[in-house]
């Protein structure tokens, strides 16, 4: 799996949120997107998964451009910004609704994803009763439950306790070693340094590739 970002810019009204980004993401690596809040990370990720269309440039998923089409890049697990679920349903039922769309996993796979994020014991609790960290965990479980080739997580560790962060980090490293492509964004350097192989630094819409975050 290879994602190519070619001269991608996104403009809202007269402001460039992402400006002329160029990079390549390849399987078997974890990429860290680092930058302050509002630096353009989320918008960049939304363009990657074709939620947003770039104002100019293109994003290619294995050579295919999904922008301005109704199609979508398959085998991609995504959590962008905040998790979104039905408040009056349990965490498990929310995942089950989503699992039925592609129908490639069963209840045990859902439970496995919940176990990875340390949420199995709370699976029958209603989503609206979840704390911020639990909601975030459910969002991550949603992104990984179908065993996708690409995992994209935007600020995944917001509100999650350290033990679970460690567990999820280890899981992502294992998946990387199995050959998956993983992209994680955060405004916390240490979270990214622990697991990422390469970094993209976002500063007011400008994107630069870094091999080490310490120089920033």
């Amino acid at each position: 799996m290879k994602i190519e970002v070619k001269n991608v810019s996104k403009k809202f009204k007269s402001n460039y949120v992402v400006e002329n980004a160029n990079c390549v993401f390849e399987s078997g690596k974890i990429y860290g997107l680092y930058g302050r809040n509002g630096s353009g990370k989320s918008v960049f990720l939304k363009m990657l998964v074709s939620f947003y269309n770039p104002t100019s440039g293109e994003v290619l998923f294995d050579g295919v451009n999904y922008q301005n089409t109704s199609k979508y890049p398959k085998n991609v697990g995504v959590l962008i910004e905040h998790p979104s679920f039905f408040g009056d349903l349990s965490g498990f039922k929310n995942l089950k609704i989503l699992a039925r769309i592609q129908n490639i996993i069963n209840d045990k796979d859902i439970e496995l994803a919940l176990k990875i994020v340390n949420l199995l014991d709370e699976k029958n609790k209603k989503y609206k009763e979840y704390s911020l960290g639990m909601r975030q965990k459910l969002g991550i479980a949603q992104a990984i439950m179908e065993n996708p080739d690409v995992i994209i997580l935007d600020e995944p560790f917001n509100g999650i306790e350290r033990v679970s962060v460690e567990k999820i980090t280890n899981y992502l490293k294992e998946e990387r070693d199995k050959g998956k492509l993983i992209i994680v964004s955060s405004h916390i350097k240490d979270d990214l340094k622990k697991m990422c192989d390469e970094f993209l630094y976002f500063d007011a819409g400008k994107v630069s590739i870094r091999s080490d975050l310490d120089e920033i």
Binding site: V49, F51, Y72, G77, S84, F85, F86, N94, L98
Partner: peptide, 20 residues
């Protein structure tokens, strides 16, 4: 409104085409 407020559309968009 229940559907749009849940934001579940973001999770669905990575699993099926928007036209569907």
């Amino acid at each position: 409104t229940r559907y749009f407020n849940s934001g579940i559309i973001f999770n669905e968009l990575t699993r099926k085409p928007y036209s569907k």
